[in-house]
Design a protein around this nucleic acid. Structure first.
Lengths: 140, 140
DNA sequence: AGTATATGGGATAAATTTATCCCTATAGCA
DNA sequence: TGCTATAGGGATAAATTTATCCCATATACT
């Protein structure tokens, strides 16, 4: 599989949280699930820049960390649904705050981020559907 | 220097924010600065698991992203002080929420995180001083 | 003269995260 | 039969992030 060689820093709450949210698509996945997008195929459509593989991997990590639960329906073709656990829900205020902060400062952030010479291109196709999603969140 | 080869995903606010906070020590650095720990040498002492090099690199990124400002005093040996910009301050509610969430769920998180077979060791020496810091935050 | 303090950054190796590719399984439909 | 939809995961390459090492500056102190 692969074994970590450097001790994981879990000194303060900040680092513990960082570990849970650390993954290119994890925040987006949590938000998607909170918006009732629970099937992997739906998430993949919502996040077209992500590959099926990464989403699988990151969902599994979120599951191992206890943030989401996976329900497998014994059907064919397979059907799976993810949902947030209680502790997973408790992360939503943070996720929402991050999303709002980023949106509120979009023009400034795009400017400073893209002015970095390392950045030669950006992708914007993902998450576009968020704005169109008007589904109410269910509590728990 | 090095040039990014894959387009940076900046579709939704979540990803923009992720980009700004993405770095092993960035959240901790922002918090430290907000607590009036403004000199690099102090930050290094606060975060003993980080190397001087990484802190330099991540501070520079935070600066380029407009989250912190750097004031250089024309002295020798050199003296430098960082401070949060207005937009940098606006991140603090998120940073604080992350820190509090992590602390509030520490025992659970430590359990699930260390149960991962990839993780063979953890480091807890950093940030320990936070608890002892009772300095009031100055506004702006 | 040697040592400590402070800060910055180049070069390069190592570690970790993502991306790619490919294979598995089965029902349903043209 | 051949193709689509669904979901999972191994193997391996590539990309990106961190870690290590080392050099530079200049003052003050022993």
């Amino acid at each position: 599989m692969y074994e970590r060689k450097i001790p994981l820093t879990i000194d303060c709450g900040l680092h513990l949280t960082r570990e849970v949210l650390n993954g290119k698509w994890k925040p987006a996945l949590l938000k998607a699930i909170s918006l009732d997008i629970k099937r992997p195929s739906q998430m993949l459509r919502l996040l077209p820049d992500a590959t099926r593989r990464v989403l699988n991997v990151q969902l599994k990590e979120l599951e191992m960390h206890g943030m989401v639960e996976k329900k497998i329906f014994p059907q064919l073709p397979p059907k799976v649904e993810y949902s947030l656990t209680e502790i997973g829900w408790s992360l939503m205020p943070i996720i929402d705050a991050m999303d709002q902060w980023g949106d509120a400062n979009r023009s400034f952030l795009e400017t400073v981020i893209t002015q970095d010479p390392k950045i030669t291109q950006t992708a914007k196709s993902a998450c576009l559907a968020y704005g169109q999603i008007t589904i109410e969140r269910k509590t728990g």
